[in-house]
Simulated scan of single mutants.
Amino acid sequence: MADNINNNGGGGGNTGMAFIVGAIVVVLAIVAYFVFARGGMGGAETKEVNVDVDLPEVSAPAVPGGN
């Protein structure tokens, strides 16, 4: 009895999935570069940040007819 087996080696069913996974890998590589290499920003320059926040005193309004 002859078996009708079609083994032509075509495996194109996951081509779209492979393209999406490849794109995700490329995006993650770019993000990792900017996170770990500081995106090519130069030097270990430190900046002093001095923030002074002065707010006026706020009091509650008087309650009318208070005992």
Rank of each mutant, 00 (worst) to 15 (best):
G39Y: 03
P64T: 02
A29K: 13
E45W: 15
K47F: 15
G22L: 04
G12Y: 01
V51C: 00
P64L: 04
E48C: 12
F19C: 06
K47W: 15
V21F: 11
P56N: 00
A29T: 07
A18F: 05
A2S: 12
G10H: 14
M41R: 11
V25G: 14
V63E: 09
Y33F: 07
G22S: 07
D3E: 11
P64C: 03
V27E: 11
D3N: 13
A60P: 02
V35F: 15
L28I: 08
S59Y: 00
A29V: 10
G22C: 05
V63L: 08
V27Q: 14
G22Q: 07
M1A: 08
G66F: 12
G39W: 04
A32Y: 03
V63Y: 12
L55F: 07
V26N: 12
V35K: 13
A44N: 15
A2D: 15
M17Q: 13
N7D: 03
I20T: 09
V49E: 11
N50W: 15
N6R: 06
I24W: 14
M41Q: 12
N8H: 07
V58P: 00
R38H: 12
A44M: 15
D52T: 02
V51L: 00
N67C: 08
V63S: 08
M41S: 08
G42Y: 07
A44G: 12
N6M: 03
G9C: 06
E45R: 14
T15N: 05
A23E: 12
A18L: 11
I24F: 14
E48P: 09
V63G: 07
G16N: 05
A32M: 01
V26I: 12
V58G: 02
E57I: 04
N7Y: 06
A18H: 11
F36C: 04
A32D: 01
N67K: 13
G65V: 08
N14F: 03
R38Y: 15
L28H: 10
N4H: 07
N8T: 05
E57C: 05
I20W: 15
V27N: 14
N6H: 05
S59E: 02
V31S: 01
